[in-house]
Design a protein around this nucleic acid. Structure first.
Length: 417
RNA sequence: GAGGGCGUAGCUCAGUUGGCAGAGUACAGGGUUGUGGCCCCUGCGGCCGUGGGUUCGAGUCCCACCGCUCUCCCCA
């Protein structure tokens, strides 16, 4: 037997309706906020991610599915959505046409991590980006859009954590301060953090090792080192969030794993999963668009993990099963051809109809109709056939009528609310 | 990358000191000549993860490997 790739998963029919539910709610929500869908490839040139996400990040360093194409190009499965979306926007000059773009995208991402609960090597993400608008109101509205999706789906116990990681300038001065503070205790840090000291000292604050937590206890926080503009921006984001009723918590140590974030960074945190397995996250990026060859403007975006949303719905007893209007029960071989035509005539007229053309007892067909949650069963056997009629049974009330074939549709529709 | 747990029917799992491979559920048929859910009966269903070792005899004990799963790191 050939099995799945480790860390990948199938979405089986009994789960797929739940996924459709989540995706349609998300799409609906984002369109209400003015986002339009963009669909980009799941593979890009490796260079795009190296330039966009940052060479030194965990994702690019060791988590990408990268291979060499026959042409000699290095290609990678996308580990996140933003880089590909921006590549497309720049390549097609969409920002020349419209100074502000609001885009969303839904699809699979790939990261070669060790799988665990709620973490997969292929996972689906809902992604949204606002490009070309650096108002703090946009930050707040984008965060609201993200929380609206979570709420629309009915996932509970989700809270918003935000922070400002400053712009490149204040982050550099802060990095300097942080290194100065950490240097004497460098030996006490975990090996990972000793490495991060050079590559990305901000991440040390986020480390879960008790030794590192102890060292960082009195470390300076980025909030204290923001320049006037960044401080003002952050203040206005918080004010705007309050004005539209978004509950949030400022998490001064929140630092995200992607290099490109500046100013606002946020995560949607589920109480049980904690920040190490956020339901969603995002932030503002000041230089990414320019970095990829576009105009020197700012953007803000977020990603929400569909698997993690789906996990939140597990125990809430939603029913996503779709009912059908009619199950066609065929009694005896002679009725089969007429039923085949009738079933497809009803479909043509807009009803959802199912039928089985292999030999089945009526009892088995009734059982199947029940399982499929058919509202009506249309039964045709020799008796009905001879008179051009059908027996129709309302599965809820158990009422049964003998009707002409022409009457079926109106009868079924009549009972639909 | 480091560390736990688990691999027996399609699914969820029992399996005693080593002695014929089990239950529930699902599926199929019947109880009802052409009528669903509840009930009853019957049937189908197995390389006991793979390979080796110990033994008269291994699902059970030993070793190795493979797979899955969870935790940590990190992210969605």
């Amino acid at each position: 037997m050939i099995t799945l790739i480790k860390g990948f998963h199938d979405i089986l029919p009994d789960q797929s309706s739940k996924w459709a539910f989540i995706i349609s709610k998300a799409r609906n929500c984002l369109e209400r906020f003015g986002f339009r869908e963009i669909i980009t490839p799941i593979m890009e040139k490796t260079e795009l991610f190296q330039r966009g996400i940052g060479q030194a990040t965990d994702i690019v360093e060791k988590e990408m599915y990268t291979f060499t194409d026959i042409s000699g190009d290095s290609l990678s499965l996308r580990p996140e959505a933003t880089a590909g979306i921006l590549r497309s926007v720049v390549e097609h000059s969409l920002l020349r046409h419209e100074p502000v773009l609001k885009l969303f995208s839904i699809g699979p991402m790939f990261r070669r991590e060790r799988p665990s609960k709620g973490r997969f090597r292929q996972f689906f993400q809902i992604n949204a980006e606002v490009l070309g608008d650096n108002s703090p109101l946009t930050d707040a509205e984008t965060i609201l859009a993200a929380t609206s999706i979570v709420h629309a789906i009915g996932a509970k116990d989700c809270s918003v954590e935000i922070n400002s990681v400053g712009c490149r300038d204040c982050r550099n001065t802060y990095k300097h301060e942080l290194r100065k503070f950490l240097k004497p205790s460098l030996d006490h840090l975990c090996p990972d953090c000793q490495r991060r000291f050079e590559t990305n000292p901000l991440r040390i604050l986020d480390c879960k090792e008790s030794a590192c937590i102890a060292v960082c206890k009195n470390a300076p926080l980025i909030g204290e080192w923001l320049d006037a503009d960044c401080r003002d921006h952050f203040g206005q984001v918080k004010k705007a969030l309050e004005s539209i009723g978004v509950n949030f918590r400022v998490e001064p140590r929140l630092v995200r794993g992607l290099d490109y974030y500046s100013r606002t960074a946020f995560e949607l945190v589920h109480s049980e999963l904690g920040r190490s397995k956020a339901v969603g996250g995002g932030g503002r990026y000041d230089s990414l668009i320019g970095e990829l060859g576009g105009p020197d403007i700012s953007g803000i975006g977020f990603g929400i993990g569909i698997e993690r949303l789906a996990m939140n719905l597990e125990d809430q007893g939603h029913s996503f099963q779709k009912e059908i209007d009619v199950f066609m029960a065929i009694i005896g071989e002679k009725a089969r051809a007429s039923c085949f035509e009738l079933a497809n005539q009803l479909r043509k007229n807009g009803l959802s109809v199912d039928a089985r053309y292999s030999d089945m007892s009526l009892k088995a067909q009734m059982k199947l109709a029940d399982r499929l949650e058919a509202q009506w069963v249309v039964m045709v056997g020799e008796n009905e056939l001879a008179q051009g009629q059908a027996t129709i049974r309302n599965m809820k009330t158990k009422e049964q009528f003998l009707v002409t074939l022409d009457e079926i549709e109106q009868r079924v529709r009549g009972e639909k609310s």
